[in-house]
């Protein structure tokens, strides 16, 4: 059973549809207590970092999520869900993240359009990883974001994407994965990645 954290940020229907499509059984986790017993956790997120962080605290997921990480429960953060795994975000001020992956979330610093909206390639790091097993290097994924993650430890960087400079589009630390793009909207490769998380991570 895959638990999808519902901290009242954004619509979870598409994510649930995609996970079900690849054969996963899912349930929406509305309270921290409901996390008990799930094998893996998907942690989505859209909108502003500060607002998402506030909702995560208000619905009392902050510490329980960190506890699940200590228990080695595999977790996949998506978009702002990925960003929240990091230490600090500089979106409209300075906000504290869960601090599970040391590093920062910063606004794109270039003259290209912001948000980055659309399909871009992900270059996988050399190390093999169950998350991208069977997916070709430099495959296309669908992105929508104005801020990007920059981990302190280069080893946390499993995938990078170029948008006026490189940023971390897939991060990993132990049993914790984060993807900046939306696998649930990235057609076959996105579904493949979700299937990998469900079956191999």
């Amino acid at each position: 059973m895959i638990g999808i954290i519902n901290y009242r940020v954004g619509n979870l229907q598409n994510l649930e549809n995609a996970l079900n499509y690849v054969g996963a059984k899912t349930k929406l986790i509305n309270t921290p207590e409901e996390m008990e017993g799930v094998e893996k956790i998907v942690f989505p997120g859209v909108g502003a970092f500060g607002h998402a962080a506030k909702c995560l605290r208000e619905h009392k997921f902050w510490e329980p999520l960190q506890e699940k990480v200590r228990q080695q429960v595999p977790i996949l953060g998506i978009c702002v869900g990925m960003q929240l795994l990091f230490s600090t975000s500089f979106e409209d001020g300075e906000h504290e993240g869960l601090g599970l992956v040391p590093g920062e979330v910063k606004r794109f610093d270039h003259d290209l359009k912001v948000p980055q909206m659309g399909w871009n390639r992900v270059a996988f790091s050399e190390q093999e990883d169950p998350l991208f097993k069977g997916i070709k290097n430099n495959s296309w994924f669908y992105f929508v974001h104005s801020y990007a993650c920059y981990p302190q430890d280069p080893k946390s960087q499993l995938g990078t994407t170029d948008y006026g400079g490189e940023f971390c589009s897939i991060a990993r630390k132990d049993n914790l994965w984060g993807v900046q793009f939306h696998p649930e909207k990235s057609q076959d490769d996105g579904l493949h990645l979700l299937k990998n998380f469900v079956e191999n991570c």
Binding site: Q13, N14, N17, A18, Y21, Y142, H182, E184, K185, S186, Q187, D188, G190, L191
Partner: peptide, 8 residues
């Protein structure tokens, strides 16, 4: 559409 189409 959302159940069968996995692009935006």
């Amino acid at each position: 559409l959302a159940r069968e189409l996995f692009i935006p």
